[in-house]
């Protein structure tokens, strides 16, 4: 992304669920302030929340970066967690590797990645087992 982009960084705290979702709520406020259309805001808000939750469940948190230009929004979610062993499998609805205690909280239903794909114009996953995962969510504004 070029220098003209607005850039915001959020630390996704992996220590507890209490703060999970904070980055997507803050991002939503920013997007509203600069007049992004409600439909795009909703899709970003849902997809980013899923991503944040995934980072908390699987990777002890990570970094969320938001880049905004006049015609594109990029949400970059980066962690140094376990990585995704089989991306194709992980993209299937209902597939989950979340432990039982997480499912008991209502998370880990296996809809995270599918929802992120559904609620973005473009999604890139860059992952390596034992190293970490970076997911890019792209949105076209024009």
């Amino acid at each position: 992304m070029n220098n003209e982009a607005l850039h915001y960084h959020f630390d996704v705290d992996g220590a507890s669920f209490a703060n999970a979702g904070r980055a997507s709520v803050e991002t939503k406020k920013l997007l509203r302030q600069i007049g992004v259309s409600p439909d795009v805001i909703r899709r970003i808000s849902v997809a980013m929340y899923e991503g944040e939750i995934n980072m908390v469940i699987h990777a002890h948190g990570g970094d969320a970066d938001v880049y905004i230009t006049e015609d594109t929004i990029l949400i970059q979610l980066k962690d140094v967690g376990p990585g995704i062993r089989n991306v194709e499998e992980a993209m299937k609805e209902g597939f989950s590797t979340a432990p039982e205690n997480i499912r008991a909280l209502g998370f880990g239903a296996g809809m995270g990645l599918p929802n992120m794909k559904r609620y973005s114009d473009d999604m890139h996953i860059d992952t390596k087992v034992g190293v970490g995962t970076t997911i890019e969510l792209w949105y076209r504004l024009k």
């Binding site: 979702g21 997507s24 709520v25 939503k28 909703r42 808000s45 849902v46 929340y49």
Partner: peptide, 8 residues
């Protein structure tokens, strides 16, 4: 309302 908007 924030949580509702995230659909979660």
């Amino acid at each position: 309302l924030d949580d509702l908007e995230s659909g979660m």
